[in-house]
Structure formats: structure tokens, C-alpha cells
Amino acid sequence: MVALVLPRLVSFEGAGRRSASVAERNVAALKSAYWIVLISGFFEPLLYLLSIGVGVGGLVGDLTLPSGQVVEYAAFVAPAMLASAAMSGALSETTFNFFGKMKFMKLYDGVLATPVQPFEIALGELAWAMVRGSLYSAAFLVVMFALDLTTGPRALVAFPAAVLVGFAFGALGMALSTFMRGWQDFDLVGSAQFALFLFSGTFVPAESYPSVLRWVIEVTPLYRAVDLLRGISTGTLGASGWLDVAYLLAAVAIGLMIASRRMAKLLCK
């Protein structure tokens, strides 16, 4: 198995160009209906921010971060919404859309008959998912800045971090999709995504959970993403920021590797 897959994975000659051609296909497929999907992905976290961050925030008042800094509740929730927007943008592209292209449209069967290899398809699709995720992140950061929930320089630093978050979730989502048997399995992904959204230190600091539960929360990817983005947007980033970045980079590498190996196994029988 390794002998068969490795050569596909390690020959990088022209890989960038071929991955780009996979992303390019998605640009060609962009049609008017797609913009509605794009826009909805931005409004959902914005509505959460306004209803819970600003609305519920009025009742909650200010919050003391572990670093000792005091921030208003909306400023606490906003980076978490940014992280979750990056997550859902990347996931919707690399789960539903990716799975549909692979299993139902049989798109990749055609692509693999060309010089393009499974790893390059994974990389190209992920790059495209990132374009989409980055649009959400950028728009959301503009809103955060406008509502005075972060500063300009911090927003500029938070942007590449949000892109990294999207990459990590995109790669993980793609790897997960290769194990899906049918659309029903995606209900599980949806549930898991919602659980992450609620409990990853998004609305309530992870410190307020019992220690066992807190440990579980802290190893989930969305928690690491929230921790990183909140640290940047509130200017309280500590040493744990490096851990977050390492975690997310590892997620990208592992997700991509699993996705391309599984694709080679499924499609190059």
C-alpha cells in the first residue's frame, strides 16, 4: 500500500499548477445561486454576535479573561464567532460539496484520468474552500472593527490566523468526508459541529467547566481556534498561542494526508 501511495504523494513536480487547476474548476462553476450560499455563511455568525454577544452581553456585563484583563462580553464572543465562521465556511465546502463531487458527480474519476493526482485534488479543493472561508473571515473582522470589538492592527493579525483555522477545518472535513457512506452520515458531522460551536469556550470560558470536561474541551480543534483568535483580537495572546498554531498546522497536514490516501484508495482501485 505504502509503495503504491508514496510515489503519488511525494512527486511534487507540477503539483502546485495541477492543484490550482482543480481550484480553477470551482471558479468556472461559480454561478449566481452560489452567491446566496456564500452570503448565508457570513450572516449566521453575525446574527449570533448581535443577538448573544451584544443582546445577552448587556445582561452579562463584563468578563475577566484568564490573563486578568477585563473585556465586554461582545468582545469575548466575537472572536469565537469569527473562528466558527471560518470553521463552517471551510466545512461546508469540504464536506457536502466535496462528497457530492466525489461520490455522486464522479467528478474526480474524470480528473484522475489526467496528470492530476489525489493529493493535488485534495490540495486544490482545500485551497478553494479557503478562498471561501477567508471571505467570511475578512468580512467578519471588518464588522468587529466597526463595532469597536477589536483594533485595526489586531484585526490584520487575526486575518491570517483565521485563514489557518479554515485550512485546519477544511483538511479535517475532507478527511472525514472520505469515510462517509451516504448523506445520512453528514447529520453526525452537523451535530458534532454544533456541539463544538456551543462548548468550545465560545459563549462561556472553558475555565468555568469541571476540570475533566475542560480537558476534553481544550483538545478540540475549535477551542484551539477560539483561543488563538481571542488572544489576538483582545491582545492577550500568551504562550498557548504557539500551541494553538502548532495544533492547527498539524491538523492541516494530517487531514490532507488522510484525505489524499483515502481518495487514492477509493478512486484508484
Binding site: 487547476s21 482543480v22 480553477e24 474548476r25 468556472a28 458527480m105 467528478l107 480528473v111 489526467t114 496528470p115
Partner: peptide, 19 residues
């Protein structure tokens, strides 16, 4: 296994890009 999201012509031009 043509690409249902693309037109007839785009099916050819997009495929050419893979090469």
C-alpha cells in the same frame, strides 16, 4: 463523468487545464 455544473464548452476548457 462529465461535469454537470459546467457548460459543454467549459467541460473541455476546464479539462484542458488539468493537463
Amino acid at each position: 463523468n462529465l461535469d454537470p455544473e459546467l457548460t459543454v464548452q467549459e467541460n473541455l476548457t476546464t479539462y484542458a487545464r488539468y493537463f
